[in-house]
Amino acid sequence: MAKIRTGRVGEQIKKELSQLIQSELKDPRIGFLTITGVEVTNDLSQAKIYISVLGDVEQKENSLKALDKANGFLRSELGKRIRLRHTPVLIFKFDESVAYGSHIEKLLGEISKDDTN
């Protein structure tokens, strides 16, 4: 039963944070950012938000710094939009799965080229 609730809360956090970052945050350091996933602990005290940023390493680092700086604002706005007793602590992390997937796809493409030659 707890797994279902944490999953629903995670999806709602993902939806609300996406809207907040897109419409409310005006920090120019935040580039083209996508929230790829949210993991919430069973007691709803922490939420790990996985982000994917389009651009080079410097843009990724700047976006992460800007999100960490806006963490308090995002958490308070999230608390207003989602009715929970305690708003979870937000921890932003990079989602490396997109880059890893494109790397694997590139390797598979090279293998198929070698097989045809």
Rank of each mutant, 00 (worst) to 15 (best):
M1D: 08
A2S: 13
K3Y: 12
K3E: 13
R5H: 14
T6K: 14
T6D: 08
T6Y: 01
T6V: 15
G7C: 08
V9C: 10
V9H: 06
G10S: 07
G10N: 05
G10L: 03
Q12D: 15
Q12G: 06
K14Y: 00
K14N: 10
L17T: 03
S18H: 03
S18R: 03
L20Q: 04
I21D: 02
I21V: 15
S23A: 09
S23G: 02
S23K: 15
E24D: 12
L25V: 12
K26N: 13
K26G: 12
P28E: 13
I30M: 02
I30N: 00
G31Q: 08
G31S: 12
F32N: 11
F32P: 08
F32M: 15
F32H: 09
L33I: 11
T34I: 05
V38T: 11
E39L: 04
E39Y: 00
E39M: 04
T41V: 04
N42T: 07
N42I: 03
D43C: 10
D43E: 15
Q46K: 14
Q46G: 06
A47R: 04
A47C: 13
K48I: 10
K48M: 04
K48W: 02
I49R: 02
Y50R: 09
Y50D: 10
I51E: 00
V53L: 04
L54K: 05
L54S: 07
V57C: 06
Q59P: 02
Q59T: 12
N62M: 07
N62W: 01
N62Y: 00
N62S: 11
S63H: 03
L64F: 04
K65M: 07
K65H: 10
A66M: 06
A66T: 05
D68A: 10
K69W: 11
A70S: 15
A70E: 08
N71E: 11
L74R: 02
R75F: 01
R75I: 05
R75Q: 14
R75H: 09
S76E: 09
S76R: 15
E77F: 00
E77H: 00
L78T: 09
L78W: 02
G79V: 07
G79N: 10
G79L: 04
R81L: 11
R81Q: 14
R81P: 12
I82N: 05
I82F: 02
R83D: 15
R83Y: 14
L84S: 07
L84V: 09
L84P: 08
R85N: 10
R85L: 09
H86F: 14
H86L: 13
T87G: 11
T87S: 13
P88W: 00
V89L: 14
I91A: 09
F92I: 09
F92W: 09
F92S: 04
K93I: 06
K93V: 08
K93Q: 13
K93A: 10
F94C: 00
F94W: 03
D95T: 05
E96C: 03
S97M: 03
V98K: 04
G101Y: 02
G101C: 05
S102L: 15
S102N: 14
H103F: 09
H103I: 10
I104V: 15
I104D: 11
I104M: 15
E105H: 07
K106L: 08
K106E: 14
L107C: 09
L107Q: 11
G109W: 00
E110W: 01
I111G: 05
D114L: 11
D115R: 13
T116M: 11
N117Y: 04
